[in-house]
Nucleic acid binder design. Structure first.
Length: 488
RNA sequence: CGGGGUGUAGCGCAGCCCGGUUAGCGCACCUGCUUUGGGAGCAGGGGGUCGAAGGUUCGAAUCCUUUCACCCCGACCA
């Protein structure tokens, strides 16, 4: 691993790419826009995934898997849906290659498909085609299915984790007997997303409703969590859609109600993606690299032995063995770095990789029955007696977890402004930050602001208050209080 | 999809204008010895169809043509 990264203050996006690569989170794939998630990055995703998977199972959801390929015709059924995704679909048109004497390996024109197949950009359509078969009666509802899958959206501009042609996500697709139940589900999931971000990723979020322009193609309404990154830009970190009866109507999914009527099923869908890995990096990282929240960090503690010779090594191994055992018993994820790099190198490397706690153990410590523990979040050096270590480490990890959250929250709050004057609005958007202000509810106003400032309405927050509020742009009485920001 | 840029060892680059030894440097890698509490030192070593194809020339990394790929900046998006 080579030295250092571009400082955040100099060029945030260069910093981001440097960190992703140098921390061995991901690498570029051979096809434009593709990414390889390396083991260290995948371990982080795995931990996020595990936490959320547990949450949805506790709330009655089950996992399943639907196919990657979708008949093109399915997409024609929901008008807004196709509108939203048509421009970024990968299409399979042929099924074979062959060797051509002139041109080498070519697509065999003979193998052209009758009906072209698209690679899923999202799975509503396949899933609802199946739900039609599975749902007849109110007794079949609610149907609460989730899938962990990859999806493909052909993107022009890509950035590792944040926007790649193929990405991993979870997509929940639920079917309900009533509109109320669907709405409740939509908000339940949004709340789980909030908890995941705040309690596990240590990222504070605003929750709220998307405007008509920003909502999901084919949804009645879209709710979201919005987070602030280290460059004061917004990142949409998760969305939960109330799909109403749109997909049920498109796919003819009806059910018999308790009183023997026929009605269309009410639907929701919701997703979070590997983008969250990018969110963790950009919300917490510093000029030394990543700073990972302990609850999702692949390694929570890394041990760096300081040994001059084999005798020291043996001494250290004996010294740490019971400590490691004790910590593992407490389910602490601990890693020993016995590679023959120098200690200084290891310090830098594990700081780059964001391990919350580093434990240095050398002969001088062993003499004093102690170890040196260094916090990644604050850099603080703590000398711990070996007798206190096993009880203290979990506390320290908790402190780091909440410390990262508090720091991110303070940063967000310092950079979120209530504003009533458009000039002030523009100057804040220009230098970065969120603006809470009034909006007259007109999509043309929203478009004009976007055109002039590049800022978009991230959401209409649940705690909006429009008393005496006027639209930042038109001056009309506000229909909503909204949060504007430049977004990823 | 528009504008710009870059392709030379795994990575980062020099060489290219002005063609001419065996294509070079830093990092990384391998071996050995000495080291190890903030990115170790010395010695030795391996690794290249100079993005690809064609052309000009006695001779091309270098000049010309074509092409491909990727990166950056904008419009779209989880």
């Amino acid at each position: 691993m080579s030295k250092g990264v571009t400082p955040q203050s100099q060029n945030f996006s260069a910093w981001y790419t440097d960190v992703v690569i140098k921390a061995e989170m991901a690498d570029y794939g051979p096809v434009k826009g593709t990414m390889v998630i390396r083991p260290y990055g995948f371990a982080l995703w795995d931990n996020i995934k595990e936490a959320f998977d547990r949450m949805i199972k506790e709330t009655g959801h089950v996992n399943a898997y639907f196919p990657l390929f979708i008949p093109k015709s399915f997409f024609a059924r929901e008008a807004e849906h196709i509108e939203g995704f048509a421009k970024e679909c990968a299409v399979v048109t042929h099924t074979r290659l062959k060797m051509d004497s002139d041109k080498g390996l070519i697509v065999d024109p003979e193998s052209k498909l009758e009906e072209e197949v698209i690679v899923r950009p999202t799975s509503e359509t396949v899933i609802w085609s199946m739900y039609k078969k599975w749902i007849q009666s109110y007794r079949d509802l609610p149907l609460l299915i989730n899938q962990w899958a990859n999806v493909v959206r052909m993107e022009m501009r890509t950035r590792l984790f944040l926007r790649t042609t193929e990405f991993l996500w979870q997509e929940g697709h639920t079917a309900h007997a009533t509109a109320e139940e669907a709405q409740e589900e939509t908000l339940t999931i949004l709340e789980l997303y909030r908890q995941l971000l705040e309690d596990y990723l240590a990222i504070p979020v605003f929750t709220g409703l998307k405007t008509e322009v920003e909502k999901f193609a084919g949804a009645e309404s879209t709710y979201c969590i919005e987070a602030m990154m280290g460059d004061k830009r917004a990142l949409q970190a998760g969305t939960s859609h109330n799909l109403g009866q749109n997909f049920a109507k498109a796919f003819g999914v009806t059910f018999q109600t308790q009183d023997n009527r026929e009605d269309y099923v009410y639907a929701t869908s919701w997703g979070i993606s590997t983008r969250l890995v990018g969110a963790v990096i950009m919300a917490h990282g510093d000029d030394k690299g990543l700073r990972l929240p302990p609850r999702i960090a692949p390694h929570q503690v890394v041990i760096v032995p300081i040994a001059r010779n084999e005798e020291h090594e043996k001494l250290i191994r004996d010294f740490i063995e019971p400590l490691v055992f004790g910590l593992k018993e407490k389910s602490i994820r601990i890693h020993e770095d016995w590679t023959d790099n120098s200690p200084g190198f290891k310090f830098n490397e594990w700081e780059m990789k964001g391990v919350p706690l580093r434990m240095e153990v050398g002969p001088r410590d062993i003499e004093k029955d102690q170890v040196v523990v260094v916090r990644r979040d604050t850099g603080e050096k703590i000398f711990l007696n070996k007798n206190d270590l096993i009880s203290r480490i979990p506390n320290l990890l908790d402190e780091i977890q909440s410390g990262l959250f508090e720091q991110a929250k303070a940063f967000r709050d310092e950079n979120t402004f209530n504003v009533s004057n458009y000039n002030e609005f523009k100057s804040i958007i220009k230098k970065g930050g969120f603006v809470r202000c009034g909006w007259d509810g007109d999509p043309e106003t929203e478009a004009a602001v976007k055109e002039e400032t590049k800022a978009t309405i991230r959401c209409i927050p649940f705690d909006e208050n429009i008393d005496d509020l006027h639209c930042i742009y038109s001056g009309e009485p506000a229909r909503h209080e909204v949060i504007y920001a430049k977004a990823y």
